[in-house]
């Protein structure tokens, strides 16, 4: 048996096909979900992928958050369904208040695209068990609104609870507070990050390494062993 992992396509999503491919490379079965779907087709986990849903009008993720598919997703995520938000998907999860904080425009006001070094701070979430805590990885980063912000109380709480899942290393590409690249919810089933693990699952493309693949093998193992 293998796991079925849904990938939601919104109008303006860009990375749905790459994400489906990454899921397949890891050995799981990708299931295409559409933003108008009212159910999640009984998938075992969901990835909200990168792009510019609804043109990023109003705020990145603000309109996507009210899509029909988000209703069952919110309900099931709160009940433990593993959900990974990458880039625009991370923005949607913060707009939906499944994850704390939010994203502002990059502090330098430019779109940025680079190979980014990260440290995996939390290797116990549903999406990170195939990493080890403190492991350094290289995966692509590409965004306009990547500056993670939250109030000081929230940031202190996240740090104290080990919920800063990923941190930028060597270079902070967007002014994110405390170099935060990704966070997890309290239960560890909902994770969001700005960089793109799905673009680094084969040696031929991305950073020339497969540093993003463990996201997808982690969730597969968790689901198959469950």
């Amino acid at each position: 048996m293998t796991a079925r992992i849904g990938v939601v396509t919104f109008p303006g999503s860009l990375d749905d096909r790459d994400t489906q491919r990454a899921i397949r490379v890891a050995g799981a079965e990708p299931v295409a979900l559409w933003h108008k779907d009212k159910d999640l087709k009984q998938v075992d986990a969901v990835v909200l992928c990168g792009g510019f849903s609804y043109g990023d009008y109003l705020r990145a993720g603000a309109i996507a958050r009210f899509s029909p598919v988000m209703e069952p997703l919110l309900e099931q995520a709160k009940a433990g369904l593993p959900v990974l938000g990458i880039c625009n998907g991370f923005q949607i999860l913060t707009e939906a208040h499944l994850l704390p904080g939010t994203m502002l425009r990059n502090d330098h006001l430019h779109f940025i695209c680079r190979d980014q070094k990260l440290r995996v701070e939390n290797a116990e979430t549903a999406w990170t068990t195939d990493y080890s805590a403190g492991q350094e990885i290289h995966i692509p980063l590409k965004n306009n609104d990547g500056q993670y912000v939250a109030d000081a109380y929230t940031l202190d709480k996240l740090e104290a609870e080990g919920r800063v899942a990923f941190r930028y290393l060597d270079f902070n590409p967007n002014g994110s507070q405390r170099d935060i690249a990704g966070v997890t919810n309290e239960a560890g089933n909902v994770v969001g990050l700005m960089p793109h693990p799905e673009h680094a699952v084969e040696p031929l493309i991305g950073t020339g390494r497969t540093d993003g693949l463990p996201f997808f093998t982690s969730i597969l193992k968790k689901l198959v062993n469950a």
Binding site: R59, A62, F66, T102, V149, A150, D151
Partner: peptide, 8 residues
């Protein structure tokens, strides 16, 4: 709930 994100 929509026009503003009260986090920021």
């Amino acid at each position: 709930s929509f026009l503003a994100n009260t986090v920021i």
